[in-house]
């Protein structure tokens, strides 16, 4: 797993399996954006300007807000319900920077941009989860793990279990 820590610092966002982003303009109606999100099984649509530079994001959370307020999908534009967690990062930034950003903000999505600021792709918690999974190698259990795994749910719920110390 030292490799994972190293990889986090070395790998760039452009090396992740980025999803093709749904790019919409700010006047796009919510119904149209939602249809694209459903069709592409994506949780967001990125609002871009005429130069394809992102300046907002419409997410599943935006949809929840719309439904709660009773907004009409045909009379509401995506720009009226943008997600406040809008984060852009250059494609050459490290995966670690995205990792830390998500941990700090709980953002689900990160817009990844080219050098000129135009939209390159989208990643986020799903992308990093895939990245993390790829770096998990198989290992046989050790004595430490056997002791840890003898803890019951009740012990853990009660906070009464203490991890064995190495060499103890």
């Amino acid at each position: 797993m030292v490799d994972f820590s190293h990889a986090l610092s070395e790998d760039r966002l452009e090396q992740l399996d980025l999803r093709n982003a749904i790019a919409v303009d700010s006047h796009t109606l919510a119904r149209a954006a939602i249809a694209m999100m459903r069709q592409n099984e994506l949780g967001c649509a990125v609002i871009v300007d005429d130069h394809q530079r992102p300046h907002g994001i419409f997410t599943e959370r935006s949809v929840i807000s719309m439904l709660l307020r009773g907004s009409c999908l045909d009379q509401t534009s995506v720009s009226q319900f943008t997600d406040p967690l809008f984060i852009c990062m250059d494609k050459r930034q490290t995966v670690k920077s995205a990792w830390k950003t998500i941990l700090d903000t709980k953002a689900r999505f990160i817009c990844v941009t080219n050098d000129d600021g135009s939209l390159f792709g989208v990643t986020g918690q799903r992308g990093l989860a895939t990245y993390l999974a790829k770096h998990c190698a198989e290992n046989p259990p050790t004595e430490v793990s056997r002791q840890v795994n003898q803890a019951s749910p009740q012990q853990l719920d009660a906070g009464s279990y203490h991890f064995p110390q190495h060499g103890a």
């Binding site: 030292v2 190698a137 290992n139 840890v148 190495h166």
Partner: peptide, 12 residues
């Protein structure tokens, strides 16, 4: 434990 994170992930 001075174990690697990799081991811990596989064992916890």
């Amino acid at each position: 434990a001075q174990s690697t994170l990799n081991q811990l992930i596989g064992e916890t």
